[in-house]
Design a protein around this nucleic acid. Structure first.
Lengths: 333, 333
DNA sequence: AATATTCAGTTAAACGATTACGTGAATTTC
DNA sequence: GAAATTCACGTAATCGTTTAACTGAATATT
């Protein structure tokens, strides 16, 4: 494979000139430019990105760490986040390297440490820890970091989230307005800010309607399909709820599976609201009401902040962005 | 940030020794090992992966290019492929860099060319082109490439696919056995091998049952939700089919949306079979019968072949792997 | 006891780009 | 027309590792 010096030799110029032609970093006469281009084409020269990164101290690679549990092949939220981020990042000339913490702190820290090696120019992470202190000395890389989706306690750097509190509040309020009183709440593990915020929204809505929060109607479990199924079953059979709010999309599927299997009428017997909006929410019977998060925009915002940090080296004025959610009312309530 | 020479100085050894301690590439006495480890810890040394890659000519990064259309936030198949591949790759000590062709050849070739720069050690790609010749001189990098999911005409390198032909044949045969005669077929763009293979399976099944293939029952469109809806509508209202086979998961959702909206009884009025299996297939009314592809295994196989090529440099004996699909019968037929 | 081998390291040349500094010719200034 | 400036490019150090080649001391071989 041809190197820059081969091109230089073929074009009868120095490597410096070739480099400047490629990067447009200095004036080069038209005639030598042509010579260089010809040599490059003839030798099928492709600059070595690794060497370029080493010298220029920029890799044009951005890291992304998401917490996808792999037994859950259906955790679409982070997949669409990843997809969106990849698109935007590529548009700006960067590449995306994907990491998965599998919702496990140790794995996550290992992944971060791997990145602390001048490999990436910046990192976007949906963290698993509930407290920032759990990361101790993990974030010692000299690249900017933007958190996304979740905010560990004690973190006060850049972050982009969606307003799960307000979204849930709105959704649960709508249920209350429609007369539902005994509303169950299914959530993934508490401690993660998204779960906490949504629960707070639920409690606030009840509070506004003067309803006492009943802890036994709040069901927490691992955020998977089967757990969603199980918790819905408990809420219906043991607690006799008339409505269920499920705070993530995978558990929503599980809960719905239970309702369908039990031939429970929706919303006649029990109303249900889920989280996140995907096409399949439209083809359940009945179509599901959901709190939608702007996942693409979240990724976009995160990337923009990150690139600003990378390119401007701006350190001050941390951004704390809370994007609005959108309650979509369909026939399930 | 500390470099290897700082560690060497602190430990009173040469950089070579430090390097060998880190990589275990040569015997080093226990006592100097300890000195080196202490110096590393004290200086919080992290080897620079870029420099390491440059010198050792290995980046430990694998590229993956998938064709996700971004208006389709629900193209879960490639997302789960990506997720699976990331997991396996990481397990083997590699990293995954993600590219998206957006189902566009030019974008795809640009992405490949970006990778042709010694950045990656190997590439897994779900190609968009129907003919291998369309890639012309795109694959000029000196890394191994494994194709996945789709086989462009004329390609005869390593490839891992699932047996969409047999899966479809089996599914359509089951419909025929149950007495359905007028079976519509909805597919994404033909030309891509997966689409072609599934169509062939459909036609073969009809053929075995002595039924003439009716071209007007074969509906091709862009592989999105709304197109699935539209084509199902055409099949039902204009062609009067009694069963529909949809050859990808996003179009399946669209088709189902139409059936639901039109209050068409499934499978009473019309039977439907989709492609790929996800949790939401279980919560539609009724639960959908599908042809399932082993997406995780596909990724696993592809990675294994790729790593074999990378690590053993083996060039001969290209692998052509066809993994079995699995027809799952639920209540929609 | 002279030679060969092993041991545990060191020295310094790569890897392939970028870029600070230098340079000789052409042009401008006065 | 000498000095200063501009033009267009070259030289070589540098990024932080790995690794081939070398070395001096200790041990083994005959």
């Amino acid at each position: 494979m041809a190197r820059i010096k081969d091109v230089a030799k073929a074009a009868n110029v120095s490597t410096a000139t070739v480099s400047h032609v490629i990067n447009g970093t200095r004036y080069v006469s038209e005639s030598t430019k042509v010579k260089v281009y010809q040599a490059m084409k003839q030798l099928d020269y492709k600059p070595n990105l690794v060497a370029k990164s080493l010298r220029s101290r920029k890799s044009m690679i951005i890291g992304l760490i998401v917490p996808m549990v792999y037994t859950d092949t259906s955790n679409f939220f982070f997949m669409s986040i990843a997809n969106g981020i990849e698109t935007i990042v590529k548009k700006k000339g960067y590449n995306l390297i994907l990491g998965n913490s599998h919702e496990d702190l140790k794995t996550e820290i290992d992944q971060i440490k791997l990145f602390n090696t001048q490999l990436i120019d910046g990192l976007i992470i949906a963290p698993t820890a509930s407290k920032y202190s759990e990361y101790e000395d993990a974030f010692t890389g000299d690249y900017p970091v933007v958190f996304i989706d979740r905010k560990p306690e004690g973190y006060n750097g850049d972050i982009v989230m969606s307003d799960g509190y307000l979204g849930t509040f709105e959704a649960v309020s709508t249920l209350l307005e429609k007369g539902y009183q005994k509303i169950g709440f299914i959530t993934g593990h508490l401690g993660i800010s998204t779960s906490n915020d949504r629960l707070t929204g639920y409690m606030k809505a009840l509070d506004e309607y003067g309803i006492q929060v009943d802890q036994s109607l709040i069901k927490e479990g691992s955020p998977g399909f089967s757990e969603g199924y199980k918790l819905a079953e408990e809420l219906v059979n043991e607690e006799g709820v008339t409505a269920i709010f499920v705070s993530n999309n995978v558990m929503t599927m599980g809960a719905l599976k239970f309702l369908n299997e039990s031939n429970i009428l929706i919303p006649g017997d029990i109303a249900i609201i889920g989280f996140d909006d995907y096409d399949w929410m439209k083809i359940t019977t009945p179509p599901l009401s959901v709190v939608e998060q702007p996942s693409y925009e979240m990724g976009e915002k995160a990337v923009n902040i990150l690139l600003k940090r990378i390119e401007e080296g701006e350190k001050k004025g941390k951004e704390n962005i809370l994007l609005p959610t959108n309650f979509i009312s369909r026939e399930s309530i």
